[in-house]
Amino acid sequence: MAWSLIPLLVLILFIAAIASQCEFKPGGPTAGPVPSFDIDAGLKYDAAELGFPIRHPEVPEDWQPNSGSRSIVSGGQGGDSSTVGFITPAGRYVRLTQSDAGEDELVRFVAGGARTATDTRVVEDHDWVVYGGEGVEALWVSDFGDVRILIGGSGDEAEFTTLATAAGRAEPLEP
């Protein structure tokens, strides 16, 4: 019975090789190219379409914008949100979400459940509430009055501070 499976296995490997769906890499997988996202166009569009101020933070040149999205935040004080993501030089993902939703709803929406505030930071005259804990992604949230800004991702504290600084200095885009 085992001898009858060998031709079948050879045929499967042959078809996979022809279709280029199989590859042998002794060193393991390697990182592919970072996707590109036109952050200028994305944020300008969101500024024109959403009913709250959208800021375009000036991050370091070596941070590559790689994603953007808009979502509806559900909950008691739900609203809309605009998110852009960056890959830092260290290869970590950091995202900035801007929303007219309440802080609790925004944190629940992004975190997928309730989180407890664990710390605070002051960056560029803005108070940032840190939602963290063991084994969970840190989230920083600040209330800019007309918009809540949330920073999350796999970045470290220095990268979060860099993005919080850029967000604090950014002026709202014209709709």
Rank of each mutant, 00 (worst) to 15 (best):
M1L: 10
L5K: 12
P7R: 07
L8V: 13
I12E: 02
L13V: 14
L13D: 06
I15S: 04
S20Y: 03
Q21D: 10
C22A: 15
E23H: 11
P26Y: 02
G27V: 07
P29S: 13
V34A: 07
P35L: 10
P35Y: 11
D38T: 07
I39P: 00
D40V: 15
D40F: 08
A41S: 12
G42D: 09
K44M: 08
D46C: 05
A48N: 10
A48W: 06
G51L: 04
F52G: 03
R55A: 11
H56F: 08
H56K: 15
H56A: 13
P57F: 02
E58H: 06
E58F: 03
V59T: 09
V59C: 02
V59Q: 00
E61H: 03
D62T: 09
W63T: 10
W63C: 06
P65S: 07
N66D: 08
N66S: 13
N66K: 05
S67Q: 11
G68H: 08
G68L: 06
S69A: 15
S69T: 03
I72L: 14
I72P: 00
S74K: 05
G76R: 00
Q77K: 13
S81K: 05
T83G: 06
V84N: 02
V84K: 01
V84W: 00
V84D: 02
G85H: 01
G91L: 07
Y93S: 09
L96M: 14
T97L: 06
Q98W: 02
A101E: 02
A101N: 03
A101Q: 01
G102S: 05
L106F: 05
V107A: 09
A111Q: 05
G113M: 09
G113H: 10
A114E: 15
R115Y: 09
A117R: 15
R121D: 10
R121G: 00
V123W: 07
V123H: 07
D125V: 03
D127S: 13
V129T: 15
V130A: 11
V130Q: 11
Y131M: 07
G135D: 14
V136C: 02
V136E: 12
V136G: 01
E137Y: 03
A138N: 13
A138M: 06
L139R: 12
V141E: 00
D143R: 04
F144A: 13
V147I: 09
V147A: 08
V147F: 01
R148S: 10
I149P: 02
L150M: 14
G155N: 08
D156G: 14
A158E: 11
T162S: 09
T162D: 02
A164Y: 06
T165P: 00
A166K: 04
E174G: 01
